[in-house]
């Protein structure tokens, strides 16, 4: 038997790949291209409309310069509302993180080994998460009335689901060695969580929470439009009344706020995590 025959016999998949291995890639690529073209056709996409719209967009951007809140009093009103938006995001995100902590532990296979608990908590978190922040805002406005409180509740509810899932996944991916080390000393289940699991996953969780704080500042703008407090309502109003100088001022303020939050959270993460980078999400 020659060397080639022996290798062919031992590794059949390498010398004679199956049809799936050979044509899987091109078939998938073709499928994606087809669905893309089909989707564009179905939604009435036409390059002509984009070209026509470009002029409109140009006019709008032209009107945005210079960004101008009109008066100092208006500027203060906008900045105040922006502060409210940031506060909504902050309260909603961190309250959600605190409430999601026990749920995350409950939904983690390596903490609660019970299949039924695991299934129920996972599906529960998924269904909360499946409803978008904007829809929660519409619901909460009907429950507690218009204003920032509804906004905080909207972000809180939708993020409990997200954090619960992210936390439970971080916990499940935690290093098993410290857990065994802690357990081998005669430690109980609470020591196991406090010392075996949390020190390793806390930086990951913190990174996720800070990232969501920044992202929720943008979400809080949107839910403001439906009346859940903050800058969103002003933004929608100025767009409606075609006051594009005001719109530009508001948009730039939001961008600045998000940039500041991003910078602060980056430093905070670095300070707590130390030198090692921890991936978010």
């Amino acid at each position: 038997m020659t060397e080639l025959e022996r290798l062919k016999r031992q590794h059949p998949a390498i010398f004679a790949p199956s049809i799936g291995q050979r044509f899987g890639g091109p078939i998938a690529a073709g499928g994606i291209a087809l669905s893309l073209i089909g989707g564009l056709w179905h939604l009435g996409f036409s390059p002509g409309r984009i070209v026509d719209g470009m002029g409109q967009l140009g006019t709008m951007i032209g009107l945005m310069f210079p960004p101008d809140p009109g008066s100092f009093a208006r500027a203060m009103i906008y900045l105040n509302a922006l502060g409210e938006t940031v506060a909504i995001a902050f309260l909603g995100t961190f309250a959600a993180a605190i409430l999601a902590m026990p749920l995350g532990l409950l939904a983690a296979k390596n903490v609660v080994a019970n299949r039924i608990v695991h299934f129920l908590s996972r599906r529960g978190l998924d269904s909360i998460r499946g409803v978008d922040t904007l829809i929660w805002a519409l619901i909460w406005i009907n429950v507690v009335g218009l204003g920032p409180f509804a906004g905080v509740l909207a972000i809180l509810t939708s993020d409990i689901g997200t954090f619960g899932k992210l936390f439970s996944e971080a916990i499940e991916a935690a290093d098993k060695r410290p857990v065994e080390g802690v357990l081998s000393t005669g430690a109980g289940p609470l020591h196991r969580i406090r010392f075996g699991i949390l020190p390793g996953v806390f930086p990951v969780m913190l990174g996720q929470v800070l990232y969501y704080f920044e992202s929720n500042t943008r979400s809080a703008t949107i839910i403001g439009i439906v009346g859940a407090g903050g800058i969103g309502l002003h933004l929608a109003e100025q767009i409606r009344t075609l006051e594009f100088g005001h719109v530009a001022f508001i948009v730039l303020s939001i961008l600045a706020a998000v940039a500041v939050i991003d910078a602060i959270s980056g430093r905070l993460r670095f300070a707590i995590i130390g030198k090692r980078a921890v991936p978010v999400d």
């Binding site: 065994e180 080390g181 802690v182 081998s184 000393t185 005669g186 430690a187 020591h191 390793g200 930086p203």
Partner: peptide, 29 residues
């Protein structure tokens, strides 16, 4: 388990905890 201590190949310490507290975990029972 408290009476029968274990030392592991990969040390199995809590990496992000300081040395003293790692040692004190031996008193956890």
């Amino acid at each position: 388990r408290a009476r029968c201590a274990m030392v592991f190949q990969q040390f199995n310490l809590v990496g992000r905890l300081d040395v003293l507290n790692n040692v004190l975990l031996g008193r956890s029972f």
